[in-house]
Structures are given as structure tokens and as C-alpha cells.
């Protein structure tokens, strides 16, 4: 078991209505020097969150105590750019368990699932509804139901289904990861390799 399992998450959410949030923003390269996976949350969105004197920037959402929760809601094309898994680690370490967007970059989406974060892709219209609901009431809660593959804005009752393949869903529900699976089929891999 590699991480906490994920089933139903009910939480308020942190809105980040910016498009093309790249992984250099999520965690700048100068914070990739660790050789262990810990402490990355401190530098999540470092240069948007802190000024050059390391003082919190009051206009950035993570510094606004009105917005809290385990769900991060981002604009279109979230997680583009560098393949650094440190971006997913930083999001997880900060306390998020789910990222919602209308579109994810491929590598980030894979990395997120591999570390136990559920990426939920919704329609642009539904994303807009989420941002509106949070703007109206920062405490508004979202429910992300993995078994039913459904996300709901609890204050309005609006909901939408989301996609995830059966294999990855099973992994997340049980906290299994790909390495467990691959270790179990090692003989098949060795035989495949010897025939190449």
C-alpha cells in the first residue's frame, strides 16, 4: 500500500481560476534539490505565495484564510510543463487530495494518481459553476465520490460525472499502486524481454 485510499471526499475548496498553471509555478526548480519526499508543501506555489523577502503575498488565494479545504480547483490545462512529480508531492503534502480542472496535462494527471491525488476533469461549464459557488460562499462544499464517479456542488446540488479507468479507480479506492501490480507479473516481463 503506497498511500491513503480515496473513496468519498467532502470538503470546501481553494479556487485558482488561472489557465495553464505549469509545474514550475506549482514548485519552482530551485526547490527540487531534496533526495527524500518530504516538506514540498512549504514551497507549493512558492513565487505566487511569497514575495522575494519570503513574506506571504496577501492577494494569493493560499494566503487568504477564507479559502481552505482538501480540494484545489484550477483553470484549464492544469499541470502543464515539466514532468516533475514534485509538483504532485507538493500539492499532496500541503493537504490537497483532489484537483479539479476542465483539462489536465497528461504527465501531471498520471503523477497525481500515482501519488494518491484524484484529478477530476469536469466540463468548462461545470468548472465555471464551481468557481461561482465558491465566490458566493468560500465555505461551500464539494463532494467528490470516486465509487460513483460523481462530483457535486452541495450548496446548489449541481453535479457531473467524471471519467477514470477501472484499473486506476480500483487502485485509488484501495491505496494500491502500479509497482505492486508490476512486481506480481515480473516473470511475464522477463519472458517478454528475452523474446525481444
Amino acid at each position: 500500500m503506497a498511500y491513503d485510499s480515496f473513496s468519498v471526499l467532502r470538503s470546501s475548496a481553494v479556487p485558482l481560476p488561472i489557465e495553464n498553471v505549469d509545474t514550475d509555478q506549482i514548485i519552482p526548480a530551485r526547490f527540487l534539490k531534496a533526495t527524500e519526499r518530504k516538506g514540498f508543501g512549504d514551497n507549493l506555489f512558492r513565487d505566487w505565495r511569497f514575495d522575494k523577502n519570503d513574506q506571504p503575498k496577501s492577494d494569493f488565494v493560499l494566503n487568504n484564510p477564507s479559502y481552505q479545504g482538501k480540494i484545489l480547483v484550477g483553470g484549464k490545462n492544469f499541470g502543464s510543463g515539466s514532468s516533475r512529480e514534485h509538483a504532485a508531492w507538493a500539492i499532496y503534502d500541503y493537504g490537497f487530495r483532489c484537483v479539479v480542472s476542465s483539462f489536465f496535462a497528461d504527465i501531471f494527471r498520471g503523477n497525481a494518481i500515482n501519488v494518491g491525488i484524484l484529478p477530476v476533469q469536469v466540463s468548462p461549464e461545470f468548472l465555471h459553476q464551481i468557481f461561482e459557488a465558491i465566490e458566493k460562499d468560500p465555505q461551500t462544499e464539494l463532494e467528490v465520490n470516486l465509487p460513483e464517479q460523481r462530483i457535486t456542488i452541495l450548496s446548489t446540488g449541481a453535479s457531473e460525472s467524471f471519467e477514470i479507468n477501472g484499473y486506476k479507480k480500483h487502485n485509488l479506492l484501495n491505496g494500491f499502486d502500479d509497482i505492486d501490480y508490476l512486481q506480481a507479473m515480473k516473470d511475464e516481463i522477463v519472458s517478454f524481454a528475452s523474446n525481444r
Binding site: 515539466s82 514532468s83 516533475r84 512529480e85 514534485h86 504532485a88 497528461d106 504527465i107 498520471g110 503523477n111 500515482n114 501519488v115 479507468n165 484499473y167 499502486d177 502500479d178 509497482i179 501490480y181 508490476l182 512486481q183 507479473m185 515480473k186 516481463i189 524481454a193
Partner: peptide, 23 residues
Amino acid sequence: AFGIGTSEVEMVLSSQCIMQSKP
């Protein structure tokens, strides 16, 4: 040829495989 995350680096080291849906 494509980029992968560190979890996948661990997969390749340990099993020479990764899990990929065909694009």
C-alpha cells in the same frame, strides 16, 4: 520517447515497465 514522473522511474527500475494508456 516521453517524460515520466518519479513513481514511474521507480517502476522502470524495478520492472522495466510502466503503465500507460495508449494516446
